[in-house]
Design a binder for these strands. Sequence first.
DNA 1: TTATTGATTGACT
DNA 2: GTCAATCAATAAA
Length: 202
Amino acid sequence: MPLKFKKLPLCFYNNDTEKVARELLGKKLVRVLNNKRLSGIIVETEAYLGSTDQACHSRNGIKTKRNASMYLPGGHAYVYFIYGMYFCLNAVTKSSKNAEAVLIRAIEPVEGIELMRKFKNSSKQDLHLTNGPGKLAQSLMIDKTLDGESLKGNNLFIEETGITYKKNEIIKTSRIGISKTNEACDWQLRFYVKDCPYVSKK
DNA sequence: TTATTGATTGACT
DNA sequence: GTCAATCAATAAA
């Protein structure tokens, strides 16, 4: 099997969440629909650190119907509905004890761009298909039906690419969309590829 | 029970 | 820059 079609092993996800978030940059997110591949290179992620992280859905160990997938073992998908209209995709990491995950915020489209355009129904430039968590979910047809799915399955997974970034090519900042009143609003858990036009915000 | 908030986006002043 | 869309979770009453 050629390198470009290699799914990441479970041990990749069963690791320190911040490390997984950083190492997901350059990997390829793949969505398979009707035997067609929609994919893109991950260029922006954020880590969410479970019970101790007040910006995380599983803060203080709370478990609801919405965030139940965060308590699955590493290597599963957590897809949640936000602001009444968008879905966001996360990769669950580590054990089920502390419900940690990595939010995939932006990808650079590679395969199936025509279909992405169709699903998103947008007349704008392709840049806007996947440069944000809600947008990429829309373009790749990611919704609640994928919540809790294994990333070793056939519908949604992440592949090795051979792409690696040097330390000075990765920017580390505070997370997007966290309220200023949240004690975790300044935690440096967002990672993105420097000078990449496909990230959601600079 | 009702009111407010939120890991967002797009349209508009 | 402001603001509406629209719903699950949470807080307030």
